[in-house]
Structure formats: C-alpha cells, structure tokens
C-alpha cells in the first residue's frame, strides 16, 4: 500500500506528513499535483501549507486543480482521504467535506497546542480512541474557523459527522477552549463516507515522540484502513 501526499505549489507540511507516516511504518510518497494520482494509491493526504499563497480563499485554487477530480473519485470508491489544515480547507472547497474554514475570530494566525474531544470512535481516524477521549494536537492557522449555515450544521450533527471538537483538558467545550471561533467548536468533520476526514489541527506534528505529544499517530493510522465503508 502507498499513501499519496499531494503536493501543491505552496504546500509545506507534505514532508512532515511523509516523515510521520514513515515513523509509523506506513508507506507514503509525495506526489506533485500535476503528475496525477498514482494507480497504487491506497490512501491520500491533503497536507497543510499555503497552497497558491491562499489567494482568493485558503484552499480555493488547489481545490480546483485537476488532481482533485481524481481524489474525489478515489474518495467515492472508499480510499481513505485525510485533509489537514490547508488540506482541510482544500477538502471543504472541493466539496469532499461540508462547510468552510475561514478567518479566525481573532483575525490572527494562531500557532498553539489545543485539546480535541473525539466525537465518534467508529471511523478509521478514531478507531483507536473512544468517544469522549481528549487528545492534544497543535494548530497553526489563520483561517480555521468552521462556518456552515445552522440548518446544515444541525443535519451534520444529526448524521454524526462531527469528528472532533475543540475542548479543554477535561473535555468540556466552550468559548475559552475554542481557539478560532468555529461554530459549535467543530475542529474536524467527515465526508459522506467516514473514510474521508478533514481537520484543522495537525496530527503529523503530534506523531514523532521527540517533538511533543503523540496523540496524532492514531489519526494517521486511519490511512491504513482498507476503506469501502
């Protein structure tokens, strides 16, 4: 199996993702978006960064590059797809996942550790956790505030498609533990299939033990899932 990490002009967490996956013994390679999706792809990472300089809106340009049609097709076939940070913005802009990530409530770039509450444990990304578990993962974004209209958000919650919410160390949500003003503290959601997920926090920066917490490891292991569910 090979995980394809899609590199766009301006991606900058592609190598971090590669290194984290290598540490987990998951075979991965960085794929330049113009080269198309390799046939042997068994998982896809849309990495963080500033694709196309965040022109227009974060993720807007990358979401419309031809490789994303292949990514959507693979996602529909059950290939696990994980969008992280800028990759999450690309995922939402491309319609892989609902909603949009836009300017932080603070109007500033924020780089800090946050706590996330696992909202469902029956996905490949959270299979090693239990619902309600609290994990620590860093964020680094200026446009990470989750926005979606109220009716749609209600639908998502009813369909159990919220994967992670920002919370405090005890797992309580609220304005103090919500770093960017995301609606209902949403930090990550799944697509139509739970094999497709996007989140603003960086699991690949919480994987190598020498750089801090390692709670991101189990999220990345979701890329090993066979898919098809």
């Amino acid at each position: 199996m090979t995980v394809s990490i899609i590199r766009f002009g301006g991606s900058n967490c592609d190598r971090d993702a590669e290194r984290a996956l290598e540490y987990l013994d998951i075979d991965a390679e960085i794929v330049w978006h113009e080269d198309g999706l390799p046939e042997e792809t068994t998982g896809i990472v849309l990495p963080g960064g500033f694709s196309y300089g965040d022109y227009l809106r974060a993720g807007a340009m990358a979401a419309r590059s031809p490789i994303m049609a292949e990514v959507r097709e693979a996602a529909a076939d059950g290939t696990p797809v994980l969008g992280v940070c800028n990759g999450a913005q690309v995922g939402c802009e491309s319609g892989l996942t609902p909603g949009a990530f836009t300017t932080n409530r603070s109007a500033r770039f924020q780089c800090e550790h946050v706590y996330l509450r696992v909202e469902r444990d029956d996905t490949p990304w959270t299979a090693h956790y239990e619902e309600g578990d609290v994990i620590e993962v860093p964020i680094a974004h200026g446009e990470g505030r989750y926005e979606i209209d109220d009716d749609r958000l209600e639908e998502l919650e009813a369909d159990d498609r919220i994967l992670f919410r920002y919370c405090d160390v005890e797992g309580e949500t609220g304005p103090e533990s919500n770093p960017n003003g995301s609606k209902h503290d949403v930090a990550g959601v799944v697509g139509k299939r739970k094999t497709v997920a996007v989140l603003m926090p960086h699991p690949e920066r919480a994987t190598l033990p020498d750089v801090g917490p390692t709670d991101g490891q189990e999220i990345l292991r979701g890329l090993e899932s066979a898919g098809g569910t």
Binding site: T103, N104, R105, A107, R145, E147, D149, G181
Partner: peptide, 12 residues
Amino acid sequence: LKHGVLDPEAET
C-alpha cells in the same frame, strides 16, 4: 459574506 457570518477582518 452572507448576513450573519462573522467577519473578523471587517471588525478589526
């Protein structure tokens, strides 16, 4: 932005 969507840049 749609009515009701927070606009932190405009607020700043």
